[in-house]
Simulated assay, not measured.
Amino acid sequence: MSAPIVHGGGVTAAAAAFGGRPEDWLDLSTGINPCPAALPEIPTRAWHRLPDSHLVDEARRTARDYYGSGEILPLPVPGTQSVIQLLPRLLTMGEGAKVAIVAPTYGEYARAFISAGFAVNTVNHVAAIGNEHRLAVVVNPNNPDGLAWPVETLIGLHDRMKAVNGLLVVDEAFGDADPALSLAGHAQRLSKLVIFRSFGKFFGLAGLRLGFAIAPDDILKRFEEWLGPWAVSGPALSIAGSLLRSDVSAIRRLINERRAGLHAVLTGLGLQITGGTALFTLVDDARAGDIYTHLCRHHILVRKFDYAPTWLRFGLTPDPAADRWLGEVLQRFER
């Protein structure tokens, strides 16, 4: 089995190494909205009972309307990580069962397929995905560089995968802030497409462990069977049903404000922004390792990358006070 992937959000380990209480750190290591949406009222029965089918059905109808998936009712899942680990089951082992992943990207895709015994080719462009591949993974927009592929390009890739009886998986975990990038509106006519959507990142509620899968009915039924009964909690389904019906324009505005605040700090101190999405920013700097350690010593955690030692990923700050804290600490870095 391959080694575990190091992800953002490890503030407890950082505090153990550099001191302080985890709750007192400024955690900028994730791509999660730092200003969570207000929780709607959750009926007592959602806590008291196992999640009844009407809760699942309501969440699916609401997700269909929110994502614009037409006749497809997105399947609620306990975080998209749960279905990433199921993807190898959609393939048959044997000659020709190669997987292509546009990289660098979220490392759990490669880990899931390698652990299941599949050959994985990492490519830097969708054009490098060939007829020998039976499944292709594209994260759009990508984590960590924010690279975004046009809808038309991904539809063309889908058609190439379909021609060889392959499957295209598009991870839109960071897609809520820019719905124009989403393939969800085309999904019902793309028979070899699986889309994953994250709920917790945009709404700032990652602790719910909730996502949605958009795919042909036969694939959704397999995911549902493999996940087993009551995979998503009643409170999570209830919250999703409420928030996906709400007006999210204020959430988008606040995310854009927080992104502008973060960019002002970083560019004001001469750091080079080389990519990102609405929920995180990628910096490229030869001193990245030293900057990372300096920030940790002042109880600010960002994301570093073993495969790209000059990169640092900064998540959004929650408010202007955090902007000032980050700016003051970076200003004290010995250049």
Rank of each mutant, 00 (worst) to 15 (best):
T44M: 05
L208M: 15
I251Q: 08
L181Q: 08
P141I: 07
L168N: 02
P309E: 13
A260C: 04
L86R: 12
D290P: 03
G156Q: 12
V151T: 14
L183I: 05
E257R: 10
I42W: 00
P229W: 07
A278P: 01
V302G: 07
D217A: 13
S246G: 07
I195L: 15
H133E: 15
I114D: 09
G204W: 11
V329C: 10
C296E: 07
R332A: 15
C35F: 10
P40S: 01
I219Y: 14
H186D: 09
Y67C: 09
L266Q: 02
A97E: 11
L75D: 04
D57A: 14
D176F: 10
V120N: 11
M161G: 07
W325S: 10
R111M: 12
P144W: 04
V164M: 05
A187G: 08
A15T: 00
V265I: 06
L26M: 01
L279Y: 02
E23A: 12
Q272S: 14
W47F: 15
H125M: 03
F333T: 07
S182W: 09
L154W: 03
H133W: 11
A236Q: 07
L183K: 08
N33P: 00
P4Y: 00
A119M: 10
G315M: 08
I42H: 02
P150A: 06
I239T: 05
I32A: 10
G185V: 02
D145G: 04
N124Q: 09
P36D: 00
I72L: 13
F314P: 11
A37M: 02
K201P: 02
Q81L: 14
F305R: 04
A308L: 10
V83R: 04
A236D: 03
M161T: 07
N124D: 13
L330Q: 07
P78N: 13
G228F: 08
Y66T: 03
W325D: 09
R160M: 04
L316M: 11
T277W: 01
S249A: 14
A163V: 11
L167T: 15
V265M: 01
N140T: 05
A136P: 06
N33I: 00
